[in-house]
Design a protein around this nucleic acid. Structure first.
Ligand SMILES: [Mn+2]
Ligand SMILES: [Mn+2]
Ligand SMILES: [Zn+2]
Ligand SMILES: [Zn+2]
Lengths: 129, 129
DNA sequence: AAAATAACGCAACATTGTTGCAAATACAAA
DNA sequence: TTTGTATTTGCAACAATGTTGCGTTATTTT
């Protein structure tokens, strides 16, 4: 398998995501980086960070893609990585927060092979009320 | 409130969605309509159908927006409409199916006001295995 | 130091979704 | 049936997001 390198772009992007309490969009990351690298590079770095299980992708109810760090994923078990926790998407401030302690229970549908799950609650976050 | 009219575009789009076993994207609807109307009109009709609670919007794990009919929503209770059922997103054929009998249980997060939920399972659908 | 590999910038393109405005249409009232 | 009007549509223009190819730069290995 192809090895990976640490670059300024990758370091800064990961730092941004790790230090943010909410999930960040590509646009938000780009403006925070302040011209450090090209927007295509941001897409490619995010892709890399996901395959390396450093961050995960979250999509809100409107289809907006955001990226969040993997707090609850211990580094040892990163290869068996699944983000089976819930997310909250605020309708007012549009922020996405990981609700890492919420694991929904459900009956598994017959004949379907389930690999991942996305459980997103939306409404108003504590800051907005 | 503003009244709504029945047009050829609206009728055909609703028929398409109602007769499809899986959720349809704007692009799929457009190609099925075969030039019946402009693509902007499709967006506007879909918006209308959603506010009229005829269809609902589903977003898959990659952020692709699709539209599905409201089978389990009785016409009487359309004004108190919430789609609190799960969806399945196939990683192979990319189809989205409503799993209308699956309602997940979870503990409500404190301080968050929940208005909607999106519970999407993904993996391989029965047709693809 | 040289070769190999990984990451990058840039340009070009595709897809998705939005907005303004004038023309067409649906539908209810006359 | 005709008329009036609010609703819907088409078109053009635009914005946002994401992808690809390719030549250049940077990092790692030999
Ligand atoms: Mn998360
Ligand atoms: Mn559904
Ligand atoms: Zn908020
Ligand atoms: Zn499938």
């Amino acid at each position: 398998m192809k090895q990976t390198r640490n670059t300024a772009a990758k370091t800064e992007i990961l730092k941004l995501i790790n230090h943010s309490p909410v999930a960040l969009s590509h646009a938000e990351i780009q403006s925070a980086l302040n011209g450090l690298c090209d927007r295509v590079t941001i897409y490619r770095v995010l892709e890399r960070l996901i395959t390396e299980d450093e961050v995960h992708k979250v999509v809100n109810l409107e289809g907006v893609v955001k990226y969040a760090s993997c707090h609850s994923c211990s580094s040892e078990e990163k290869h068996i990585h699944t983000h089976n926790h819930a997310h909250f998407s605020c309708e007012k401030c549009k922020e996405i927060t990981c609700l890492e302690d919420i694991e929904p229970s459900f009956k598994v549908p017959k004949n379907y092979q389930i690999n991942e799950m996305n459980f997103t609650l939306s409404g108003i976050c504590p800051n907005c009320r």
